[in-house]
Design a protein around this nucleic acid. Structure first.
Lengths: 257, 257
DNA sequence: ATGGGCGTTGCATGGAATGCAACACGGTGA
DNA sequence: TCACCGTGTTGCATTCCATGCAACGCCCAT
């Protein structure tokens, strides 16, 4: 909506792909060098881009700080963390916490597996939305029109033969997940990795986050992992309880002086 | 330099302090509501802010993704990580990696202590620049005028009685650190926590990063921690070697097709 | 029913972002 | 040594676009 800001912000994903010099930025933005220079300077003043010795620009430090502060403001995360850690303690497997935001699902917390063979993932990284167990739970809870709209505009990459092939299959899967209250991903993203997941609900019953336990099947078989389902669900319920308890539903009035 | 972008970016740190509604954002920016709305919309389109159910804005998901990609572009980090992990393995203590950027020093990697009592820190969080051992190393390597200028404009908070009191003391300390090639922080930030740190150098000898080992003195005394200094220095040298080897000094030409 | 608070929209105006052209600078080859 | 690129940088006139205003719609509370 604001051309100048729009251009400036477009620089960030561009630099995320790697450092670039002034000319490259200007070209890829389709603006004059002087314009790009001024935009970059403004970004620089705010610490979002950094100029390295060779004069090329790359993403800046403030970005980390902002992301950190952002994640610390998510109260679900704080409340959930001890539960996730405890679950990791009991099972030894990788535990994830994810939320949905504007058509993306992303991990906001993670407790690493104790086993040497670990799955790759990164906090902040958007997940494979069409196959991840946590994504299914979060999207299954959307109001139907939104769910349909989102399903329609997604891509359905065939990571493996068991990946969700298309929108129809996805919506079908979401219906099932919605019904049963839990979800799995059995080799849908990476052939050898399985996950089981359960939803975390707010006081109004809406799904606010989802958690999962993941393990490669060189460590445990899918059946063994599924056996953990009751435990995972109980953990999710415990978190839901904590969360609903501490966060008064919808009361955003000023706190009593 | 660009008013519009400047205003838009000012919203981010503002939201980092917690969610805010349109009116609050407009007030704190000193602009009309409609202006704030358009800025927020632009930020929203780029995923930097998110609008929660109660219509208030908070920092958005793309910020994480950007921060992640930014950190993955830092090759020092990638090269250093296995060394840090190995050092953590041998000592059991928390190991940090930090870089300097525009007058700030921040952690870009961390391997957690094995001991139950851990120090608090966060990747991405700017460090206490006047007392942290890694900060001393990074700043000690700056050209003298820059070092003086920076020292002059810093604040010198008295975290503890042993915190660096003022610019003069700081510059003195930097000189010492520069001379000896390593640094410590003995209770200068938190009374009970000590660190020893060593520099990581690029092929041209400049300090590109610094690493440290930290432990509370309920776990090991300062003397015991200092005994690890040779090991820390050897590790830093090993990283420097790896880093100089894989990153050809200053050669930013196109890679051979 | 009625008022107040909030977010939202269309529009006229002026300020601010833009592209241009000229400059500065460092490196390269003659 | 000089001239010549290819950078990044600056001042300036034009113009477009961001701005503030005022009016509207909406929801909640009284």
């Amino acid at each position: 909506m604001s051309q100048t800001v729009d251009r400036a912000l477009s620089i960030l994903p561009l630099l995320a792909q790697g450092p670039a010099d002034l000319g490259q930025v200007a070209d890829r933005l389709g603006v004059h060098k002087s314009t790009a220079l001024r935009l970059l300077r403004t970004l620089h003043e705010h610490g979002l881009v950094y100029r390295q010795q060779d004069q090329r620009y790359r993403l800046g430090a403030r970005l980390f700080a902002l992301a950190q502060e952002a994640v610390e403001n998510l109260d679900v995360r704080e409340i959930a963390h001890p539960h996730l850690a405890a679950l990791n303690d009991r099972t030894g497997h990788t535990v994830h916490l994810a939320v949905h935001e504007d058509g993306e699902v992303l991990y906001i917390d993670k407790v690493e597996s104790r086993y040497p063979v670990r799955m790759y993932s990164r906090i902040g990284k958007p997940v494979a939305i069409t196959v991840a167990a946590v994504a299914k739970l979060l999207l299954a809870d959307l109001p139907e029109p939104e769910r349909r709209a989102l399903a329609a505009k997604l891509d359905y990459p065939r990571y493996t033969p068991r990946s969700t092939p298309d929108a129809a299959a996805f919506l079908q899967e979401l219906a099932t997940v919605r019904e049963q209250g839990w979800a799995t991903d059995l080799g849908g993203h990476e052939e050898s990795i399985n996950c089981v997941a359960a939803p975390i609900r707010g006081a109004d019953g809406r799904v606010v986050a989802a958690m999962s336990v993941s393990a490669p099947n060189v460590v445990v078989t899918a059946e063994e992992l599924l056996a953990l389902l009751p435990l995972v669900r109980r953990t999710a319920e415990a978190i839901s309880h904590d969360y609903s308890g501490t966060t008064p539903p919808k009361e955003t009035e000023e706190s009593p002086a």
